[in-house]
């Protein structure tokens, strides 16, 4: 299984990837991770490739071979879409980061509805307000944990919930464990709510 994680510097993409990788290791699943954070300053593109099981060969996922995209930012999701299989699940935090470069006209930030439309054309998208939910559970810093909750609830990963929670616990200060668990649960709930909504609409 191939998972791509993406976002901008400051989102916690690298940490989140390592949490999933450590959880996989706990569950005895073969794992390899490739990361790009050459200039991972705040606001720069960050992407990591997580390879599980029999796909854990090289550290890079070939184009159009990824099963899941965990995206912390809409434009970054669009940027990585070329790695996805048709119909692959995209779990997207809908909080945009429009850099000052875009305000200055040095780069372009597309309309969010255009981004979503392009992704929906080929992927199974789950759109969650992870940043907002993280603030609800205490701090925007926990956006990544909300996203992990969503990913866990989607049952797309062959990794157990317990192992994910243990891996999170091993990475956060003891005082922050409770709020992180809350963030994780809010993420799970957000996913379930989305599923319900989709069913209702259908």
């Amino acid at each position: 299984m191939n998972v791509i994680l993406c976002g901008v510097g400051g989102n916690g993409v690298v940490l989140t990837t390592r949490i999933i990788a450590e959880a996989a290791l706990r569950d005895g699943i073969k794992v390899r991770v490739g990361e790009v954070h050459g200039l991972a300053m705040r606001g720069g593109t960050v992407v990591s490739h997580l390879r599980l099981g029999s796909d854990a060969k090289g550290v890079l996922v070939p184009l159009r071979k990824a099963d899941i995209l965990l995206a912390f930012e809409p434009l970054e999701a669009l940027r990585q879409m070329r790695f996805l299989k048709r119909g692959a699940k995209v779990i997207l935090n809908n909080q945009t980061y429009v850099g000052v470069d875009a305000h200055l006209g040095l780069s372009k930030y597309p309309e969010v509805c255009d981004i979503l439309e392009k992704i929906e054309a080929a992927q199974d998208i789950v759109d969650v307000p992870a940043s907002r939910l993280a603030i609800e559970s205490g701090s925007v810093i926990m956006t990544n944990v909300v996203m992990l909750g969503c990913l866990s609830a989607s049952k797309e990963l062959p990794i157990s919930r317990d192992s994910l929670i243990d891996a999170i616990k091993s990475r956060v200060p003891p005082l922050m464990i409770d709020s992180n668990i809350k963030a994780f649960e809010l993420g799970e709930k957000a996913f379930q709510d989305w599923e319900k909504n989709v069913v209702c609409q259908a």
Binding site: L39, T45, P62, R64, R79, M81, R82, G99
Partner: peptide
Amino acid sequence: QEDLTEPYLEAQELVSQRVPS
């Protein structure tokens, strides 16, 4: 390599590089 078909090509067209600062 899998082909980058229509929706994927269109997605690429919409993406521009962020300029660091």
